[in-house]
Write a protein that binds this DNA or RNA. Structure first.
Lengths: 206, 206
DNA sequence: TAGATTGTTAATCGATTAACAATC
DNA sequence: TAGATTGTTAATCGATTAACAATC
């Protein structure tokens, strides 16, 4: 089935499957099944099988899935069978923590460029990376060929930052600023707003 | 309409609407419309009107919505017209950044208890909060009457941490550990895994 | 073989959208 | 009034699930 026909909501579940598979692998499981994955993740086995069927046939009737194989297939499908270099804009408390956090590089996304527009911060070094002025984003990002960026600026600066990133050739943005940004149709944006998650849960509390 | 009939996906969009309204308010807008909000957020105006209709009638035909009023209504509906105290478990790089991050308290969620199971960290003070041993979670959380917690431990410790939190009476968990946790049906869980977002976008890159 | 699980189809379920009467 | 926008209905669209033949 052609790539363009896969619903984005299905693509969004693949990383969850991959995460579970990597964990199973690290725990020594060689084989799993849609039922076991469903149990672990709290979703239906039918959904897992249907999601995977968009991309091929990875299982064996009566047996299930080979953990290492399916894991590798998902990494290939998601294009995470390589290391991606990522630009990070905004080195406040949050940005600093993201720059230091080991969980990205460990899973294939290495933050390799830091930008900020505060003259006090420019030139500082974090994790061997020197903070550069935001105005240089277009040229530096393009020179390094980066395609992915994170925005950790205040909300006020997010749209302007996104414009600079797009100008530099960025095609995927993880936005930590609590504001919607607008970008060309061929640029992907994902949002992380922990407070929105907390508010959503507060609805169900007394 | 009874609370239980509101789809969770609708509840999940209310914080996004609220965020946009607060921003409009701060920019001096007194009135807005479903069309303007739709434009800002990149969703349809019909969806915004339909979502709001689950909770009442907040607009005026021909005019739109009074920003401050709708904002206050959404805060009331979401139960964020108060300050929630939040427990944070796991004070590594990520947890430390969360504890310091001003964006929570500013929007009604104050981190007020810190826990870790590393003897080196116990007793340390961050933002006037003393890190306490994880084993004391049940009693301390219950004594303070907290209902919301964040998990920022390694994946290995997340399930055990969730168990302790539930034992202490926690009813909503924001889980930063990259692993699914299982909790009783009346406990809500939201996940934040930035790498999953990056992987999802990588699918669309060459 | 008998038992188990996949991949897939068709049915069901739920969410989104278009359209418009009501009305400010 | 004329123009604009809401709240709501019905239709459309899309996602999830149940069920089972195929087959390991």
């Amino acid at each position: 089935m052609a790539r363009s026909e896969v619903p984005d909501i299905v693509v969004g579940r693949l990383p969850i499957y991959l995460r579970a598979l990597i964990r199973l692998h690290s725990e020594g499981h060689e084989i799993t099944s849609s039922h076991e994955l469903a149990q672990i993740l709290g979703i239906s086995s039918a959904q897992i099988r249907k999601d995977l069927s968009y991309f091929g046939e990875f299982g064996k009737q009566g047996t299930g899935y080979h953990v290492a194989t399916l894991s590798a297939e998902l990494q290939r499908i998601l294009h995470v069978d390589r290391e991606w270099q990522v630009a990070l804009v905004g080195v406040g408390d949050l940005g600093r923590a993201l720059a230091r956090y080991g969980g990205f590089a460990h899973r294939g996304f290495r933050i390799s460029l830091l930008f900020d527009n505060d003259p006090e911060k420019i030139g500082q070094v974090i994790n061997d990376m020197t903070i550069m002025p935001a105005e240089q984003i277009p040229q530096v990002v393009r020179a390094h060929g980066l395609k992915i960026a994170m925005i950790a600026t205040p909300a006020d600066a997010a749209q302007e930052t996104a414009n600079l990133l797009v100008e530099g050739g960025i095609r995927a943005i993880l936005n930590y600023a609590p504001i919607a940004i607008s970008v060309p149709k061929d640029v992907h944006v994902q949002y992380i707003d922990p407070v929105a998650h907390l508010q959503r849960m507060a609805y169900y509390l007394d």
